[in-house]
C-alpha cells in the first residue's frame, strides 16, 4: 500500500505539467497563431477604438437603439449569470408582466400583441448578444421614430434588420437571431445616410 504514495504524488505532478501547463499553453499558442482575433474575444472596433465584443451583449437604453434582452446582471460581465427564478416565482411573474407592459407601451404595440419570449425573459448568461428577428422587427417603428426616419429611412432600417438576421447555422443548428451590438453599430452608420435621404 505504502508504495503507492510516491507514484501518486509524482504522477499528479507530471500530469499537472502535461495537462496544466503544456496543454493550455499549446492551445493558446496555436489559437493565437490561427485565430488571433477570436482567441482574444472577438472584439469589435468602431473608428479604431474597441466598443465591445460581438459575442458579449450590451445594455442599450433609450429609443434610439435596439434593445437587448433583459439581463439579470444588466450586462455586467463580472460575473455572468441569470435570475434563476423558477416558473412559479412571484418575482419572475412580476418582472415579466412589467417587461411585457413596457415593451408594448414603448413600442406602441397593440395591448394583445405577443411579445417574443426572449424580450420578456432574462438570458442564462446575462450577456446574450442576440434577440430574435421578431424581437428586432417589433422595435423598428420605435427606433425609426426616435431617429426621425422618413418612409425611405424606415425601409432602409427594415432592410438592415433583415440583413442582420443570421439564420440557423448551416441552415440547421440553433435559432435565427439578430446580434444587437452589430445591428446598433450598423444603425449608427445608417443614421447618417438616413438623414441625408430624408
Amino acid at each position: 500500500m505504502k508504495k503507492a504514495i510516491l507514484p501518486a504524488i509524482y504522477l499528479t505532478l507530471s500530469m499537472t505539467f502535461v495537462t496544466g501547463i503544456i496543454y493550455p499553453l499549446f492551445i493558446t499558442a496555436v489559437s493565437q497563431l490561427i485565430f488571433p482575433g477570436r482567441a482574444d474575444g472577438s472584439l469589435v472596433k468602431v473608428d479604431g477604438s474597441v466598443v465591445g465584443s460581438k459575442l458579449i451583449g450590451q445594455h442599450f437604453t433609450g429609443d434610439r437603439y435596439f434593445w437587448s434582452r433583459p439581463s439579470s446582471t444588466d450586462y455586467n460581465a463580472l460575473p455572468s449569470g441569470a435570475s434563476n427564478y423558477g416558473p412559479t416565482s412571484d418575482s419572475l411573474k412580476t418582472l415579466v408582466e412589467r417587461r411585457r407592459a413596457d415593451f408594448i407601451q414603448l413600442n406602441s404595440l397593440p395591448s394583445n400583441a405577443i411579445v417574443p419570449a426572449e424580450m420578456l425573459y432574462a438570458s442564462g448568461s446575462g450577456l446574450d448578444p442576440d434577440i430574435s428577428p421578431e424581437g428586432a422587427e417589433l422595435q423598428i417603428e420605435r427606433v425609426a421614430r426616435a431617429r426621425r426616419f422618413g418612409p425611405r429611412g424606415r425601409e432602409a432600417l427594415a432592410k438592415l434588420v433583415r440583413r442582420s438576421v443570421r439564420g440557423p447555422q448551416f441552415g440547421l443548428l440553433g435559432e435565427p437571431r439578430v446580434n444587437v451590438l452589430l445591428l446598433n453599430i450598423a444603425l449608427d452608420t445608417l443614421h447618417v445616410t438616413g438623414r441625408k435621404t430624408s
Binding site: A117, E118, L120, Y121, S132
Partner: peptide
Amino acid sequence: ASTPTMEGKET
C-alpha cells in the same frame, strides 16, 4: 407571457 419560457435560455 403566453409563450414558452425563455428565462435562463440563450437566444
